[in-house]
Computed example of a mutant assay.
Amino acid sequence: MSWRQKRSLGEEFVSKIYDTFQVDERYVLDHPDGFTYWSGDLATTVRTDPGLFRQSQVTYRVTATTEFIRGRGRVAEVILALEDILDHGTMSGAVYNPQTDVFALECGVYATEDNSEFSKGAMAAAVCLQVNEAMVLSTRLAEHLRTSIAYSAHPTQGPRSGVDESLSHTFEQFTASGAAPNRWHGQPEWQQAEWVMEREAITFESDHKGRIHATFPWHCGGEPIDFLVSIEEAHPRLGAGLHATLVIPMPLPKAGIGKLALNLNHYEANEYKRCHTLGSWCMHDEKLAFRLFVPNLLYTPQALTEVCVAMATRAIWVDEWFVALRQQAAPPSS
C-alpha cells in the first residue's frame, strides 16, 4: 500500500506536500507512509502516522525532517549558535541526534478535518521553508564553526547536482507576499482569538486588530508564562506575517537555554501533545521561549485561532513538564 492512494487525511497531507515541492521523480524514495526527497544535497523526509481516533475524529501526525549539519566535536558550539538563529526562524525547530551526530530541522501538524483549512497549507509551506532554512544554516554553520554539512544522496541516482529551481520560485512567493501589507491586520478573527485567551489564559489584553498579549499559569515560582501574538514584528527575510512568542520565566545561563531548547523540540516531536510543532524552542531576549512566524502568504481566517490554541496548549503542558521535573529533583521527605 502507498500514501499515493490518499486513503486517509494524513496521506492527503503528504500528497499536498509532494505536489507543492513539484518534485523530480528521479530523486524521490518512496516509503509506505511518505517519501524522502533530495531537492539538493540534503534529504527531506515527510511521513504520516496511521492516525489516532479521539474525541469523535481521527487525528493524523504529519511530520517533515531535514538533516543539515554534523556535530563533529562541535556540538556545544552549534547549539549555542542555533539558540540565537532560531529566534528568527519560521516554522521548524532544531533537534540533535547523538547516535548519528546530526542536527536536523523538524516540523509537524496534528491534522484533522476541522483544522485542515489551515494545517494542510501551513505544513506544505513549512516544509518548503524548512528546506530553504536547512540549506542556509548548513552553509553558514559549516563556514563559521568548521563542521561539516550533512550531505546525502539518493540510493540509486547518487548526489544531485544543483538545487531544485522550484524551491527558489516558492521562496520568492513568500518574500513577495511579505512585502505587501499585513493580511492579518484588522481581521475579524482577532475576536475569535480573544475568546481562546478568555477561556485558557490568566489575563489577556487585545487591540482587536493586530496584537494580543496574555499570561498563563507557571507553578515553578516567579512571574507567569508570557504570550504575545502580533503583526508588529516583521521577519528579517520574509517580511510581514504573524509572530507568536511564548516566554518561560525561568532564569537560565545562555548555554543552558540552547541545550534545553533542543531537548524540548525533541520532546515535542516524539510525544503526543496535540499542539502543532510549527516553530521552535530557542532563546528570545535571553530567556527560554517558543517562537513561530507564519508568513503573510499563509493567511487564512483559521490561522490565528489555530496558532493561539496551539500556544495555549503548549503553555499548559510545558508548565506541567517543569513541575514534574522539579518534583523528581526534590529530595525525598523524611
Rank of each mutant, 00 (worst) to 15 (best):
G34V: 12
Y151F: 10
M135Q: 13
D101S: 11
L238H: 04
M91I: 01
H276R: 09
W281K: 08
Q302E: 09
P251V: 00
L9Q: 02
A330T: 12
R291S: 06
S230A: 09
Y96Q: 11
F293L: 00
H169Y: 15
V294R: 02
E306W: 09
L82S: 08
T245E: 02
R211Q: 12
N270T: 03
N263D: 12
K6Q: 13
E271P: 02
A81W: 03
E200Y: 02
A255N: 05
Y27Q: 14
N265G: 12
S92P: 07
S161Y: 12
G186A: 01
I69K: 01
T277L: 12
G93I: 01
K259I: 10
T203Q: 05
V58A: 04
N270E: 11
M135G: 15
Y299R: 06
S152L: 00
M197N: 01
F174K: 05
L137Y: 02
C107A: 08
W184L: 02
W218E: 05
T112I: 05
G210S: 14
L167T: 12
A94F: 06
D226F: 15
Q327T: 10
E194T: 09
G279K: 09
P251D: 00
I149K: 15
R7Q: 15
Q187V: 04
V229P: 01
L42C: 13
D101I: 10
A324Y: 08
A94P: 05
R61W: 00
A111M: 06
H31A: 03
A193Q: 07
H154Y: 11
H213W: 10
L82Y: 03
G239V: 00
P32V: 04
T36A: 13
A94L: 13
